[in-house]
Simulated scan of single mutants.
Amino acid sequence: MRVEDIDTPALLVDVAIMEENLRWMQAKADRAGVKLRPHTKTHRTPALARRQVELGAHGITVAKLGEAEVMVEAGLSDIFIANEIVGPLKLTRLRRLARRARLAVAVDSPVQVHALAETFASEAEPLDVLIDVDTGDARTGVQPGQPVLELARLVSAAPGLRLRGIYTHEGHSYGAPDVAAVQAVFRRSQEDMLATAALLRQHGLPVEEISVGATPALLVADILPGITEIRPGTYIFLDAAQANLLGTYARCALTVLTTVTSRPTPERVVLDAGVKALTAFVRGAGVCQTHGYGVLKGLPHLHLEKLSDEHGVFTALPGRAWAIGDRVEIIPNHACPTCNLYDRIYGVRDGRVVNAWPILARGESR
């Protein structure tokens, strides 16, 4: 099957670039002596998660319980759900799933600890727990230091639970103004985590895992000694945001294949891919700032300027013709929500389709 035989809009992955990205991050983890536990929320595709494990990953990370259920059904057996699991419906599902695979979950409140302990107290095996630490992202998580120690004591004393360690996400690295600032964010985050782990150990609490990770930081910054695990996600494909950090689109494996469906004026080019095919996601500031709603592959200064539900619009370059029926590939601003819009990813090599991977965890956000 040739790429020309695929109807549009469609999600493509350049297999050679993807494999290079996978091997690059695995090699970085190996050099640092840390585990790579990739965040599969980016692709939500069990076949790609298995490939990451084949190349050396120590299990996977997911964002949602629904993703974990799909991954376990597909044969993945070592999963960290990097999120707080709340409510009796989800806790029942979690208990059922923990009987089939090695799981760990996040906590940042005594409320969650008590609910998990009540759910797992009578289980044959304890549930592993990692404490969510806010090192600057200002999302979930307790503050480093004493607040982590207090929560860790509660976890360690709770029936049915086992304290595995601590984790953080340096999401604020996306908004750092330049590469040096990204590196500083990552260093400070790791230092806070290492100091917090030392505090826990001083008080007799085991810290098996010190887990960190955000793709921007791991692309350009060093991993400090003492860190045990990294959890990048977007590195498998990269996207326009990561390309702006790196200064090149050459490592972007993911594109949306579109067709020119209208040329209503000499300047205006209209594609058959809008919000439902690309998302309207933009990063408004920082070294990962994106411009427009996607970048034309091979034309890094040409962006989609407008999206509606079914259409994307850009302005033609002088002297460059796009005819109705022409195909155009768009590098999305953000790979993760883009993948969630499709049923499958077409793996492409040298203009031919070599794989069609089903995105089995698409929509599994519960």
Rank of each mutant, 00 (worst) to 15 (best):
Y235V: 06
L149E: 08
D134F: 11
L296W: 07
I79W: 08
I131A: 08
E19A: 12
A115R: 14
E54S: 11
I359N: 10
T338Y: 06
S189G: 14
A277I: 02
L36S: 05
I210E: 01
E67F: 05
G286K: 11
G66E: 03
P266W: 02
V282D: 03
S308I: 11
L163W: 08
K297W: 06
V348N: 11
T259C: 14
R99S: 15
K306T: 00
I60V: 14
A101Y: 10
S262M: 06
H39D: 15
L246I: 11
V287R: 09
L11F: 13
T61N: 14
L12P: 04
S122Y: 03
M25G: 00
G56A: 04
I17V: 15
L89M: 08
F281M: 13
T119K: 09
P46D: 10
I6W: 03
R320I: 14
M71D: 11
R37N: 02
T338N: 02
K35C: 07
G204Y: 00
A321N: 09
E329G: 01
L161G: 12
E150F: 02
V269D: 13
D239A: 13
V260H: 01
Q112C: 05
T234M: 05
T315S: 12
V13F: 13
V142N: 13
R139Q: 12
L360Q: 02
L149Y: 02
S262Q: 10
G160N: 07
F120Y: 09
P264D: 11
E209M: 10
K276Y: 10
L149Q: 03
A121C: 14
I85W: 00
T61G: 14
R362K: 15
M193Y: 07
P358D: 00
D5F: 06
I60P: 15
V3Q: 04
I331T: 09
D350W: 02
G351A: 10
L317W: 04
P206V: 09
T259L: 09
R320S: 01
L55G: 07
K35Y: 03
T265N: 00
G292N: 11
A74C: 09
R162K: 15
I345M: 10
A29D: 07
A214F: 00
V354E: 13
F314Q: 05
P337S: 00
A115D: 14
V62L: 06
R139E: 01
L302T: 12
Q143H: 13
H203P: 04
T279Y: 06
V155D: 08
